[in-house]
């Protein structure tokens, strides 16, 4: 199903998501020094640049490694414990999040790369991930959906910024002639 190049891209983006958990802090305008983990940005980029399937598999691979105990989540966390916590839904949500981001990128082709990536990352990377995240939170601790949504809302502005960052990076990296990514289906 996957060519060698697909497998390598999937793996390298999983490695990118992992590396982003350890990046020294970036200077993000507007964030005002609030420490935000970049890993969700990696998830959005995986979807936007690799496409729905490869993007989702890349995230799945990353989460598989976290589950078996690799300390790859921001702050060096890893292991099964994180999947039993109240915020596990956000991690699980990364998989459909990357898928939807990639799917929307393809659906909106052709068009302005920046705007497509921004819209796709907003829906896939923010809406989908947060929806899965707070539904899981509500179910796990027995809150009402409304309460969970209120608690969730604190984190939305930061992720909207990440969607913007994703759009910027994707518009440059994805537009690169050498990487030939700005096309839904590659001929060869």
């Amino acid at each position: 199903m996957f060519e060698t190049r697909d497998i390598v891209r999937i793996s390298l983006f999983a490695a990118l998501i992992a590396a982003m958990g350890l990046f020294p802090r970036l200077d993000i305008p507007l964030a005002g020094g609030v420490p935000i983990t970049l890993q969700t940005l990696g998830v959005m980029l995986a979807g936007a640049l690799l496409g729905p399937w490869r993007g989702a598999v890349s995230v799945l691979l990353f989460l598989l490694l976290v589950a078996v105990g690799a300390p790859l989540l921001a702050g060096g966390r890893g292991g099964l414990g994180v999947f039993f916590g109240p915020t596990a839904g956000y991690l699980i949500g990364w998989i459909p999040g990357a898928y939807v981001t990639g799917w929307l990128m393809q659906k909106t082709w052709p068009g302005n790369l920046f705007l497509r990536a921004y819209a796709a990352a907003l829906v896939g990377g923010v809406l989908v991930i947060h929806a899965v995240g707070f539904c899981y939170l509500a179910w796990k601790v027995g809150m009402s959906l409304r309460q969970a949504a209120v608690a969730d809302f604190i984190f939305v502005p930061g992720d909207i910024l990440k969607a913007l960052a994703c759009a910027y990076v994707a518009s440059i990296a994805g537009g690169d002639r050498l990487t030939r990514l700005n096309v839904p289906k590659q001929p060869s």
Binding site: I7, S11, A14, L61, L65, A70
Partner: peptide, 9 residues
């Protein structure tokens, strides 16, 4: 794929 992630991270 697992080896590649560990190697390239």
């Amino acid at each position: 794929a697992v080896a590649l992630v560990i190697r390239f991270m």
